[in-house]
Design a binder for these strands. Sequence first.
DNA 1: AATGAATGAGACTTCATTCAT
DNA 2: GATGAATGAAGTCTCATTCAT
Lengths: 174, 174, 174, 174
Amino acid sequence: MKLLTEKGVQATPMSAIAKAAGTGMGTIYNYFATKEELINAIYLYIKSLEIQFITQRTHDESSLKIKFLEYYKAFVDFNIHYPECFAFMDQLQNSPIISECTKDEGKTEFLPVLELIRKGQEDGIIKKMSMDAILQFLAGTLTTYVRWMLSIEENDRDQYLDQQMRMVWDALKE
Amino acid sequence: MKLLTEKGVQATPMSAIAKAAGTGMGTIYNYFATKEELINAIYLYIKSLEIQFITQRTHDESSLKIKFLEYYKAFVDFNIHYPECFAFMDQLQNSPIISECTKDEGKTEFLPVLELIRKGQEDGIIKKMSMDAILQFLAGTLTTYVRWMLSIEENDRDQYLDQQMRMVWDALKE
Amino acid sequence: MKLLTEKGVQATPMSAIAKAAGTGMGTIYNYFATKEELINAIYLYIKSLEIQFITQRTHDESSLKIKFLEYYKAFVDFNIHYPECFAFMDQLQNSPIISECTKDEGKTEFLPVLELIRKGQEDGIIKKMSMDAILQFLAGTLTTYVRWMLSIEENDRDQYLDQQMRMVWDALKE
Amino acid sequence: MKLLTEKGVQATPMSAIAKAAGTGMGTIYNYFATKEELINAIYLYIKSLEIQFITQRTHDESSLKIKFLEYYKAFVDFNIHYPECFAFMDQLQNSPIISECTKDEGKTEFLPVLELIRKGQEDGIIKKMSMDAILQFLAGTLTTYVRWMLSIEENDRDQYLDQQMRMVWDALKE
DNA sequence: AATGAATGAGACTTCATTCAT
DNA sequence: GATGAATGAAGTCTCATTCAT
């Protein structure tokens, strides 16, 4: 993951990956038929890591708004916590290397958020827009926010989260 | 541009570009020293197209909110109008192929928007957050929105723009 | 043998051979030091099969001509009966994979035929040519004849054997 | 051709072929998409050489028998004259590398011989067997004869040709 | 004795770039 | 200035062989 994101997929030969992994090239090919398959597997691995992380970081809370922002924060935290994962996703999310099939598999993690938003819409708290409209909006804000955070000093980051969450919530709330 | 985005940068040989351009490979190299330089030039060309498009589509209007949304809409329209440009940018924006220098050059187009936001903040219309926070937020919403629009039928697109702009404005407004 | 001839030696990995043989790769290497050695062993195995087959199919007969043609027919029958053996031999006979040593070992099977021809020459029945000339001639006719037979429908084969043997005998007889 | 036959197809990397040809590997790939295609092209090139050679070496003669033997001799001569061509054909004739399509293209050279044999059958000079039976028979004798000739000293060769042609003709003649 | 995961040399092929025409 | 054939470094992937289990 590190090599792939630092140098770019194209600029990372399998030999370099094998070396970094402390193994032979052939060994990798025993587990992943092609470089592409390896990359797709990393994609799904990150997604599973993310699900695990999100699940641990979110708890049932009284208010729906607080629950929602907890989720948002958890996504942010995961990506800032594992910047290599973020960099990997950022570069490959929309690349043709990641198969549609893999992307679909990766979407399951959003189910709880989806449910939360639906509830908020029913209760008249969240704007009654199509789910796609809301999800893509959230994803967009998240990606650029994390990218920005990772580009600045670690110490300077905390001050921006509240602002960001305020914007996100204002955008969504009825 | 078309080839580069459809097949991916790596999967597009210079020979294919030359063929599609109806010229010889050598001729391209007379104008661009490397493939990378060509790609950076396309990047800047798209940016210049965008500036031109935005300038044409925006007029002085009474209300700052309307002016702002006009800009937002213009950005959206440009990308939907030139999906190849969007695809190119979407794929290469964060790639190491585009040099920092090129990226900086490309940023000038945002100056009018920047100015507009500053004005809005002074007037107490827009949240008093750091400019970076706002710009990255806007960029994020824009990218995913356009990507979404391009993924659905052309006829279905119109209905979503107002929703999107409402979310964006709610996020920004004081 | 089947794999080796169907796919070609190069396109048949040892792993595939092991799988088809219902054993592990390591086990094969306990018996044959290299892939080449395995192939040479198969070569000799086929030759031994052939000798056995020929011996069973030929009996002492009164006339030398009949004896000779019985041999010829036995060779033909063996190869048509075991088309995989023929395919193996046909492909590898002249390949550098089969060592000279192995080829020499394989020649012993021709001794009875050789003896028969010598007798025929003494008796003035067979042309008094060098033994090599005759043997290579016979081998040539045999190979292409079997290859042809295997390329046509099984039912159509019988009609050609007599013609073939007539040509062969006419060629040899004084 | 030389490398391919001396070392075997598998043991001859394209890099070695390029080196021997005094060119770069890439250059070869500008003309032949794959190694296989190169080998098929060599096959057809040899066939064309052979046709040219045969045509030059054969003339209209009075007797059909003489005409026929002239053809046979021409085939023999070609292969002995260009032993590398023979070695190439001998090794690859029945290999799956040579496509059926290529083999078909290569068969045209036999047309004149075919015509000659048909004439001989009409005139009651040649056995009335199926053309396939005769052609495969001839091909078989030819291949092994040439292989034998090439395995012995050049000076010793002449003595055997008449014997061989006598056998071939006796086999065919009514 | 049997096994098969691990290995890395080496195969084929691609393609950015050059340069003689 | 335009061209595209030539080039070879470098990439992906295969597979004969080993050896710890």
